[in-house]
C-alpha cells in the first residue's frame, strides 16, 4: 500500500513539475503583416492607419470647405456694400443731371425727338 502511495506521489510530482520544463515559444515573424491584413480586411476603416489618414484627409476637407464658405460670405457681404455705395453714387449723379428716379419721367422723356 505504501509502495503504491509512493509511486502515485512520484507520478503526481512528475506531472506537477512538467510545467517547469515548458520552453518558451517564438512568435510568428509574419504576425504583424497578418494583423495589418486583418485590420484592412475587416473594413474597419476608422481603425486602420490608412483610414486614419483618410479621416485626417476628411477633416482637412471639412476645414477647407469651412474656410471656403467664410471667404464666400465675406465676399458677398463686401460685394453688397460696394454695390450699395456704387448705386448711391449713380443715383446722386442722376439727381445732379435731373435723371432722378423720383421724377416720373425717364431719361428719354426730357429729350424732344420732334
Amino acid at each position: 500500500m505504501k509502495k503504491k502511495d509512493n509511486s502515485t506521489e512520484n507520478k503526481v510530482d512528475r506531472i506537477l513539475e512538467s510545467i517547469d520544463h515548458i520552453q518558451r515559444v517564438e512568435g510568428n515573424p509574419y504576425l504583424y503583416s497578418r494583423i495589418r491584413e486583418r485590420l484592412k480586411d475587416e473594413g474597419d476603416k476608422s481603425l486602420s492607419f490608412f483610414s486614419r489618414k483618410s479621416v485626417i484627409n476628411a477633416r482637412l476637407g471639412i476645414v477647407m470647405l469651412a474656410i471656403l464658405c467664410l471667404v464666400n460670405v465675406f465676399t458677398i457681404i463686401n460685394y453688397s456694400s460696394i454695390d450699395r455705395s456704387e448705386t448711391s453714387g449713380i443715383s446722386s449723379l442722376s439727381e445732379a443731371y435731373g435723371w432722378s428716379d423720383d421724377s416720373s419721367q425717364g431719361i428719354y422723356d426730357s429729350i424732344d425727338f420732334e
Binding site: 518558451r24 515559444v25 517564438e26 512568435g27 510568428n28 504576425l31 494583423i35
Partner: peptide
Amino acid sequence: YQNKVLNTCLGFVPNIQDAEDLCQEVFV
C-alpha cells in the same frame, strides 16, 4: 510583446493555432 502574449495564450490554450489566433485578437 508578441512572444509574451503568445506564451501567455499557450499557457491558457495549449494549441499553437488557437494561441496564434488569440495573439492576433489581442493586438487588434
